[in-house]
């Protein structure tokens, strides 16, 4: 490959990456700005980081976001893994019906999912709040878990399970010691996907919770009307860095296990 074309390709990718990263860099820089203005730099300070930990509403929203994400991740991973194993052992026709059902939420836009759940809660006269938001998150997380476990089950050698049974394992033992370890990677991917989707969700949470129980996204949304505080920038900078560190640790560990 010629040097010019290589340079051009690198330049192009760099350009796209700059486009993707500029707002994030702006956001992180703003979080260290002493003043409240978005445009004017008034000196470096940790002021907004101190404010962040004093803000009750942000801390509450953080608590809601993280607990919902963790509980939704656990429930949807269990529900989804069991469902994937179940669907995998179904007959062809049943299997395709179940997979269509699983793909349905992905083909529905978020706003419709959110509204349909809101209508369900209104119709059944359930007060919207923490619990309904959690139900909604489990609902949109589970199909993603199934979609990440299913391929691993399909890749698996079918006879391994039968061999375990022939060698005297009970179905339950074979399930725990053959099937689940075989699709462990898919389960982990699914769980992580569920966690991040739930952490970042705005639209569905917005329709399924009340203004009294807010997660970070709905809090930010209601803050945009009043003018956004740099404390939220500080928070997102911290979360961003936390996720980066997590990624580096996971990367290091997978490299070691290779």
């Amino acid at each position: 490959m010629s040097k010019i074309s290589r340079f051009f390709k690198r330049f192009y990718l760099g350009f796209i990456l700059v486009f993707l990263y500029v707002p994030i860099i702006v956001l992180i820089v703003q979080s260290f700005n002493a003043g409240k203005s978005r445009a004017k730099w008034e000196g470096f300070s940790f002021h907004w980081y101190q404010e962040l930990f004093k803000s009750v509403s942000i801390m509450n929203a953080l608590q809601v976001t993280i607990t919902v994400a963790v509980i939704a991740m656990i429930v949807s991973t269990i529900l989804g893994t069991l469902a994937a194993i179940g669907i995998y052992s179904m007959k062809k026709r049943q299997q395709s019906i179940m997979m269509t059902l699983t793909n349905l939420p992905n083909t529905m836009p978020d706003i419709v999912t959110g509204i349909s759940l809101m209508l369900l809660f209104i119709f059944t006269k359930v007060d919207r709040g923490y619990f309904t938001m959690l139900l909604a998150h489990i609902t949109f997380d589970t199909p993603y878990v199934i979609l990440s476990v299913m391929p691993k089950l399909k890749q698996m050698n079918k006879h391994t399970y039968e061999a375990a049974l022939d060698l005297g394992a009970t179905p339950g033992y074979a399930l725990l010691h053959v099937l689940i370890p075989e699709c462990r990677q898919g389960i982990v991917t699914g769980a992580m996907l569920a966690f991040t989707l739930s952490l970042d969700d705005f639209t569905i949470s917005y329709f399924t919770t009340s203004p009294l129980v807010q997660n970070l996204s709905t809090l930010i949304y209601s803050a945009t009307r009043r003018g956004i505080e740099p404390t939220l920038n500080a928070l997102s900078a911290l979360m961003f860095i936390a996720l980066l560190v997590l990624l580096l640790i996971v990367n290091r560990r997978t490299k070691e296990s290779d």
Binding site: V26, D200, S217
Partner: peptide, 14 residues
């Protein structure tokens, strides 16, 4: 990974 609402708001300051 950055909250998409905040990323969109960041464009405002640009």
């Amino acid at each position: 990974w950055m909250n998409f609402l905040l990323r969109t708001i960041a464009w405002m300051s640009l």
